[in-house]
């Protein structure tokens, strides 16, 4: 157990280090965005004096490295600052939208993860048959289409022609849960289709890789049916790579929703970041980017820890 604690401790430290480096990259990257908020606010009529005055009032005249440490310091205290465009508290601005994004990701995951596992196992069970090939073709096709295309196709069929589901996902904090779920249905489905293929193919590949091991032959020579060989003997040993790819896709569900949120006009973090980039609202862009990065790092950390604790050699030392 001590060993596991140590390994997990190392991973957490490594995650924190990654996040710190990411914060530098984000800050530096945003500095290179063309134009700035002052010219954006003042428009074409900006005089140099007026621009300088606004920059000063916003604190943009201070050297970048000092601003970086000020920014980092206040974030560590939970203070993301205020949005330049409308002076609102950024934490307040982000919270409901982040929850919306998480909800969307969650519902997409609830649809796609069980489906991916099931499909992967079925494909592995009937490998190299018509069943496997069909699953393969369908998933490959779905991974090849861009998200917005999948989104519009779903809108066309389920919303415009069949009229079952709404094409706009306009929700707010007062929307009831059922309505919210109905509103989220199409974007969740779109996201699910996009991430499904990767997870399913990885599940199939991981299981088939494990099938080459000798203990699988042992299981077959015990007279176990192929189904039990796969689920009882191969799957437990394939869990680490599968968990990894699932968590990677969950991270994508949260950070990669920008296009889907825009297509369905869903008020999540993705839309906020697109709006803020247009308005040159640097503190908001930085905060959103950092949240995305943190999500990615934390989820990868979870994947790492999962693969550590599913390893019997580490879990049950000699």
């Amino acid at each position: 157990m001590y060993q596991i604690g140590k390994i997990i401790g190392q991973r957490v430290a490594l995650g924190a280090l990654t996040l710190w480096i990411v914060s530098i990259v984000i800050f530096a990257g945003v500095q290179f965005l063309p134009g700035d908020i002052a010219t954006e606010i003042l428009g074409r009529s900006a005089t140099p004096e007026a621009v300088a005055a606004i920059r000063k009032s916003l604190g943009l005249d201070v050297p970048a490295h000092i601003r970086y440490f000020q920014w980092l310091g206040s974030i560590l205290q939970g203070n993301f600052g205020t949005a330049l465009a409308n002076g609102r508290d950024i934490a307040e601005l982000i919270r409901p939208r982040f929850i919306n994004t998480l909800l969307l990701a969650l519902s997409a995951a609830v649809i796609s993860v069980p489906l991916a596992l099931l499909g992967g196992i079925v494909a592995a069970l009937y490998r190299n048959t018509i069943v496997d090939r069909s699953i393969n073709i369908v998933t490959l096709a779905s991974i090849s289409f861009p998200e917005f295309f999948v989104g519009y196709v779903l809108i066309l069929f389920l919303s415009v022609q069949a009229g079952i589901l709404p094409s706009m996902s306009d929700v707010d904090s007062s929307t009831a849960l059922v309505d919210r779920l109905i509103a989220m249905a199409l974007p969740s489905l779109t996201l699910a289709v996009v991430v499904l293929a990767h997870m399913m193919r990885m599940t199939r590949t991981s299981i088939i890789n494990v099938l080459g091991n000798q203990y699988i032959e042992t299981a077959r020579l015990k007279g176990l049916p192929e189904r039990r060989v796969l689920v009882g003997h191969a799957l437990p040993n394939a869990l680490a790579p599968i968990a990894n790819v699932i968590v990677m896709n969950l991270a994508y569900l949260i950070t990669g929703v920008v296009v889907v949120e825009v297509v369905f006009v869903y008020p999540g973090l993705g839309q906020l970041i697109v709006d803020s980039v247009q308005k040159r609202d640097i503190p908001v862009v930085q905060a959103c980017s950092l949240i995305f990065a943190a999500t990615y790092v934390v989820l990868n950390l979870i994947a790492d820890i999962l693969s550590i604790v599913t390893n019997p050699r580490l879990l049950h030392p000699k």
């Binding site: 000798q214 203990y215 032959e217 042992t218 299981a219 003997h233 437990p236 040993n237 599913t310 050699r313």
Partner: peptide
């Protein structure tokens, strides 16, 4: 060593 399932 190879014929036993390491996870069970």
């Amino acid at each position: 060593a190879a014929a036993f399932n390491p996870a069970k």
